[in-house]
Design a binder for these strands. Structure first.
Length: 468
DNA sequence: AGCACA
């Protein structure tokens, strides 16, 4: 007794408080669905954009009679149910409740999380993404990144309505072939809502854009900038000079803390910012000076030399493509000495007493980028588009003040109380700040070990004022 | 224009 061939009539179906609606316009939002149905009763649940064409929906009333009233109303009405001028067909669903309606990514917002399946990051440019999504409204910002799920993008629209129209139109569809490289097969878009409301874009780059802020610094290689620039011994890289140095630390037998880096590099001038991170299992540090010439001097003096005797912590220096680091003011992996509070904090952080830094200092974004945002762990608006985030691993608490700064010298006047410029040393930059037998991560509460000069932070916790 | 686990 099949119903094939003969249309089923609505009144032959078993009533349910769940109604099945079809022939909806694909842009149909949950709001429109509710508008249509709520005159008949209380809606307790909905499910929109169902089916291959995303033009079906379910609505669950709190009471069976309400569903019946809606069905019978439109069964006898001369005016069909409509959404955006399209006739909507309404029947009882063959289920009696809507299950599993909302996953976290279904909560509408103005930011979309787009997963582009089957492609690598290089295959789809940010401009292509922008082009595709701009069809639905002004795209404020885009951030792209790679996570386990694949190549993903966060796309910020003005409002949730625009975002949902883009989602409804594009979810499950593919980017047109002509916008993609030849070798790319299929690339379906999986789109959900992000918990973000405002992305924090720091650079215009091949990975991130802020279309609302034309004055944002352009960093064509915002991420690659700190990737390994292949600094081989013979590597004669024609890299442009920069006020920011990238230090790769080889043979790192001892922990190299922010303070150690600060001490070493302060010998040549004011260190403004430091970011330490891991890249391919190697520790690297970005060190920012106020100007290129200072960086150049430091680079010349330090290249190939070891922080410690015995070939430990050998430095390889190159120019970063960064010009201004965006780092947490004070964490165990970064420092911004241009912020007074950070210097103060650094100064007051007694060695060996790892007073837990406030939450904001240390990112909870293991890995990088927005991965945790996807899981909703990141507060909205805190997208860390931040090079220093590259290495989220905090391995040890920094033990400042143990570096033998006396071997470094500077001719410049220290600008920061806690900057740790070992003045009073020889005016020539020794390149052997060795400290035999006393690794810098050695804990020693209180006084410095013999022969060790407080390198930046006095162990007693007092800011050390070097002056002249 | 015809029923949802992702």
């Amino acid at each position: 007794m099949s119903t094939s061939g003969t249309p089923q009539f609505r009144y032959t179906q078993t009533p349910s408080k769940v109604l099945h609606l079809r022939n909806l316009p694909w842009e149909c939002t949950e709001e429109e669905l509710i508008e249509l149905c709520k005159p008949f009763g209380k809606i307790v649940n909905t499910k929109c954009n169902v089916g291959a064409n995303r033009n079906q929906a379910f609505v669950e009333f709190s009471d069976l009679n309400q569903a019946i009233s809606m069905v019978s109303y439109y069964a006898s009405s001369s005016e069909p149910a409509q959404v955006r001028g399209k006739t909507v067909y309404i029947q009882y669903s063959n289920r009696h409740e809507i299950v599993n309606n909302k996953s976290p990514g279904d909560v509408p917002g103005n930011v979309l999380l787009v997963t582009i399946e089957g492609v690598e990051a290089g295959d789809v440019s940010i401009d292509v993404i922008h082009l595709v999504f701009s069809a639905f409204g002004f795209v404020h910002k885009i951030a792209t990144f790679e996570k386990a799920a694949g190549f993903q993008a966060l796309i910020q629209f003005s409002d949730a309505e625009t975002a949902s129209s883009a989602r409804n139109a594009l979810d499950g569809r593919s980017i047109p072939r002509y916008l993609l490289p030849e070798h790319v097969g299929s690339c379906h878009l999986r789109i959900s809502y992000s918990a973000h409301t405002d992305l924090n874009i720091k650079f215009q780059s091949h990975r991130s854009r802020d279309y609302t802020n034309p004055y944002l610094p352009v960093n064509p290689t915002a991420i690659e900038g700190i990737s390994q620039p292949a600094v081989g011994p013979d590597g004669k890289k024609k890299e442009p000079e920069s006020n920011v140095l990238l230090a790769s630390i080889e043979n790192m037998q001892y922990a190299v803390t922010v303070d150690v880096i600060n001490t070493v590099f302060s010998a040549f001038g004011t260190v403004q910012k430091i970011a330490i991170f891991e890249k391919n299992g190697q520790t690297q540090a970005l060190v920012q000076y106020p100007d290129i010439s200072t960086a150049a001097v430091a680079r010349e003096a330090l290249e190939g030399h070891c922080i410690y005797d015995g070939g430990y912590c050998k430095l390889h220096l190159s120019y970063s493509r960064h010009t201004d680091l965006n780092v947490k003011a004070y964490s165990d992996k970064s420092r911004d000495y241009t912020i007074p509070e950070a210097s103060l904090l650094a100064a007051q952080q007694a060695p060996g007493a790892p007073a837990a830094p406030p939450q904001w200092q240390n990112p909870q974004y293991p890995g990088n980028e927005y991965g945790s945002a996807v899981q909703g762990h990141m507060p909205p608006g805190q997208g860390p588009w931040d090079p220093s985030m590259q290495a989220g691993r905090s391995t040890y608490v920094s033990a400042p003040g143990t570096f033998p700064g006396q071997n470094f010298a500077t001719s410049s006047v220290p600008s920061y109380a806690a900057a740790g410029v070992p003045s009073g040393s020889s005016p020539h930059a020794s390149t052997r700040p060795s400290m035999p037998g006393a690794p810098p991560n050695m804990r020693h509460d209180g006084a410095s070990p013999p022969g060790v000069r407080p390198g930046g932070v006095s162990p007693s916790g007092q800011p050390t004022y070097y002056g002249q």
